[in-house]
Write a protein that binds this DNA or RNA. Structure first.
Lengths: 151, 151
DNA sequence: TCTGATCCTACTTCTCCGGTAGGCATTATG
DNA sequence: CATAATGCCTACCGGAGAAGTAGGATCAGA
């Protein structure tokens, strides 16, 4: 799982918007609050707008606001909007890579891995993440013995 | 989760080696069997050798063999050997990214996602994958309602 | 009209990815 | 000893994407 700077910034900006929902917040304010490069964030927010996650208000006193309630926006939705699909194998979707011989069951593994990812990222929304009240299954994953240890 | 061509090829080559374990198999034979570009596969196998996943036998009739039994080699081990860590956020490990304000709980989410990935990729080994006898938890993930549907 | 926003296009710099080429080192076999 | 098959090493290439940056056009409220 590779979360790019775009993905990271997008989630953080969305969280900042969720915290002030339904107010309108400018790029500058978001950038200051989360210490993000403003111009780059602009491009990221444009992605979120095209994906209909946020709405833009132009002109003086403009900015962005979430189009839905924070508890209706999954983190996965944001990540998909700025980076592509959650899981890819050689640039293709896991279910569409074909294997021969002893590798035949490999697609099943990739699909299972994606499914595991979805069970986390599609099930956590901005309201939960902002408040720290994550679903119990997710909390259990993060609390696993070596979860915070690198491998 | 982004599995590169390197990762995909590495797992498939390892599976082919597992199928003939403990025989020695040449790069050419592996490439033919799984239809992989031979020269590129050479570089991938070099990574696996440096990670001590396979042993190389030089000279005429040389090739590669697994250093351990197929049921002792996790898929995650192979992926880490050729692509880096399973999970990265902005090029860093999930546990070492720091957040301020309303994004404070974000690391917990990243760690949970990595943990979910590990629960799949670290728990499946070459013997299971070659035979298709995946752990029940993994099979259940792949059998989930929309697991094979793109999102 | 002025000001503070978003929006759009373009550009840069750097790194990685996928792959290829050629030659050297090693070893079993005839 | 010669040969052929193999792994090993270095170098190279073209394309794509990542992470920003720059500058200006456009829009709306005071």
């Amino acid at each position: 799982m590779r979360v790019s700077a775009r993905g990271d910034y997008a989630v953080r900006a969305a969280l900042a918007l969720a915290a002030r929902h339904p107010a309108t917040v400018s790029t500058q304010a978001l950038a200051d609050e989360q210490r993000l490069p403003r111009k780059f964030l602009e491009a990221v927010l444009a992605d979120l707008r095209r994906a209909d996650v946020v709405r833009a208000v132009r002109g003086c006193d403009g900015g962005y606001q979430l189009t839905r309630e924070p508890n209706q926006v999954a983190v996965a939705t944001i990540l998909r909007a700025v980076d592509g699909p959650l899981a890819e194998v050689r640039g293709m979707r896991p279910e569409e890579v074909a294997y021969v011989g002893c590798a035949e069951h490999l697609s099943e593994l990739w699909v299972a891995a994606r499914s595991a990812l979805r069970d986390v990222l599609d099930e956590v929304n901005l309201a939960q993440l902002a408040s720290g009240r994550l679903p119990s299954r997710v909390r259990r994953l993060a609390a696993a013995p070596d979860a915070w240890q690198p491998r």
